[in-house]
């Protein structure tokens, strides 16, 4: 067994006033290569869960091990570095730089890891090839379709071979054809050994995961 994520009684309470218990008692282990879907209704705590798992927010209690590192206790600086190295994000809103081309957007993923520009661009071209967008490498992202933009975002997320690909409603802004293409791509990445966690309220997306966890009122059930 090789867990990528181990959450032990993890919770997050916003101080308020009044204090808000957004997440509590979360126990979860995700093995390397697993494809996990996290589902739940709006307001159930999915986004808080994603922020905690993605090291964007710090749990107020419990223990969180990412690749065996206890990220609950490390400094903010180390958490940021770890986030950049071990996690790849795919957002519903893509979050691409509109006035840069696809390859430059993808290459941004390793900018803060100190990789030289030439090596970054070469790796970015490979990643775009992997998501089937090699021919659009030099197109400005605001000239791409929604599906293409999300594939660029996925290429950016996998560029540095993260331990976990964390997807937040990855098909939320796409039509059904583009959504299917993105899900197929995620399936393919999973087959290649990528650990994937998809947070969604869409049953079609959730159905592609090999394991589903449900979150309701801030707790996994």
């Amino acid at each position: 067994m090789d867990p990528v994520i181990t959450l032990d009684d993890v919770g997050l309470t916003y101080p308020g006033p009044p204090p808000v218990r957004a997440l509590y008692g979360v126990e979860l282990e995700v093995q390397r290569g697993e494809y996990v879907g996290v589902v739940g209704p709006s307001g159930s705590g999915k986004s808080t869960f994603l922020n905690v798992v993605g090291l964007l927010d710090r749990p107020t209690h419990g223990t969180y091990l990412l690749d065996g590192v206890d990220v609950s206790t490390i400094s903010e600086r180390d958490r940021t570095a770890l986030r950049g190295q071990r996690i790849g994000f795919v957002f519903q809103a893509f979050h691409l730089m509109p006035y840069r081309n696809a390859v430059e957007n993808v290459a941004l993923a390793t900018l803060y890891a100190g990789v030289r520009r030439k090596a970054r661009l070469a790796a970015a071209r490979d990643a775009l090839d992997r998501v089937g967008l090699a021919h659009r490498a030099h197109a400005l992202t605001n000239m791409l379709s929604g599906g293409e933009r999300q594939r660029v975002a996925i290429a950016r997320a996998i560029l540095h071979r993260p331990s976990l690909l964390l997807c937040d409603e990855p098909t939320g802004n796409l039509d059904s054809d583009n959504a299917a293409a993105v899900l197929t791509l995620l399936d393919q990445l999973h087959r290649d050994g990528m650990t994937i966690m998809v947070i969604t309220h869409d049953s079609t997306v959730a159905a592609r995961a090999e394991r589903l966890v449900t979150i309701r009122d801030g707790a996994l059930c």
Binding site: R77, T80, A81, G84, F89, H95, Y112
Partner: peptide, 16 residues
């Protein structure tokens, strides 16, 4: 702000 959030999620430290 979104760009800043993205860069931070990609590992940018506040000093970057």
């Amino acid at each position: 702000t979104h760009e800043i959030g993205l860069r931070r999620s990609l590992g940018a430290q506040p000093r970057h």
